[in-house]
Design a protein around this nucleic acid. Structure first.
Length: 301
DNA sequence: TACCCTCTCAGTTGTGCGGT
DNA sequence: ACCGCACAACTGAGAGGGTA
């Protein structure tokens, strides 16, 4: 088997894992016909037993295909391992497509990415921000090589991704300091806060979804006064006009508005998110770089 | 050795077909 | 009507061989 067949194996694994030639093509940075052709060559090289059942739509792996897939994954993992041991850091090159969850950019991004640029001079970084849920899907489809996400408890462990926990982030309920209409309680319940104006991120934000789902479970109404993108802007508005907002603890502690804000102890809303680095389970060419990035992230927290 | 021609391979665009 | 897939035709890069 020459290196050409390795490309066909990658195409087969991509189609099997994404469930679609189109999505596989996106993962492989190819057009759909090119991906189809690689699959066809691989299938013909594997003999007459079909790898996909195309009588159903979308096509699914046959039992033989599933068997072959496991072998292919082992081959790709072995090749990645071989490349890792053969490559010096200076020789690892290419565009590393990384995602970072909204809200984590400023607190987490600088140190690990500085390290990558220093250590792997031939890696070009392509960094995008999005909600964690979207980032997970992008890593799953291969549009991203890795992503640092803020995962809610119900998101951790979902999808077939390798998730390395970096740290825990407590999500705080924050209000303007000395806000009179909340009284001077030491602890609140969500029922005390359901008629207060909330400033929340737009739909797509995991923290918002967790809060709304808790209100829903308790059958309480919630008054969303404004949908404001980004915790920085929310905290700024909160400091001026009052209301309630959610904020990751690190972001709150680093906020210039911190002195004008206070954290509420809400006894029936205790949300902790996991900061995780997500990547594909099959090690790729950036495996060494990602392992170092994890160490840097863990020391940055 | 340098240049040119030919062939092969892997990619793209354009398009048609079938299923939902 | 739209989407996903496969096929046909075309293109560009690279390898290999022949010739001056």
């Amino acid at each position: 088997m020459g290196p050409r067949n390795l490309l066909e194996i990658e195409a087969f694994v991509a189609v099997a894992e994404t469930g679609s030639v189109n999505r596989a093509a996106i993962r492989l940075n190819l057009t759909q016909p090119a991906t189809t052709r690689r699959i066809q060559k691989f299938e013909s090289a594997m003999g007459s037993t079909p790898l996909f059942d195309r009588t159903v739509k979308p096509a699914v792996l046959t039992a033989f295909g599933a068997h072959v897939l496991e072998h292919c994954r082992r081959v790709l993992a072995a090749v990645a391992e071989l490349e890792t041991c053969g490559n010096s850091r200076e020789n690892i090159s290419g565009v590393l497509k990384a995602g970072i969850a909204f809200g984590l950019e400023e607190t987490l991004l600088s140190s690990p990415f500085d390290m990558l640029r220093r250590t792997f001079s031939r890696i070009k970084l392509d960094v995008t921000s999005d909600w964690s849920k979207e980032l997970m899907e992008d890593v799953q489809t291969g549009s991203l090589d890795c992503a640092v996400g803020l995962l809610m408890p119900d998101q951790a462990g979902s999808l077939h991704l390798l998730q390395t926990p970096i740290g825990i982030e407590r999500i705080l309920v924050v209000t303007k300091a000395h806000q009179h209409n909340l009284g001077n309680e030491r602890s609140y319940r969500l029922s005390d806060l359901s008629h207060q104006p909330w400033l929340l991120n737009p739909a797509g934000c995991g923290c918002r979804a967790a809060l709304l789902s808790t209100f829903d479970r308790l059958e309480l109404p919630i008054q969303i006064a404004a949908e404001v993108f980004g915790e920085d802007l929310q905290l700024s508005l909160l400091a001026q006009s009052g209301g309630l907002a959610l904020a990751p603890q690190r972001q709150f502690e680093n906020s210039p508005y911190r002195e004008a804000l206070e954290v509420l102890d809400v006894s029936d809303f205790d949300l902790c998110a996991t900061i995780s680095l997500m990547r594909h389970p099959v090690p790729g060419r950036f495996n060494t770089a990602l392992n170092l990035m994890i160490e840097e992230l863990q020391s940055a927290i």
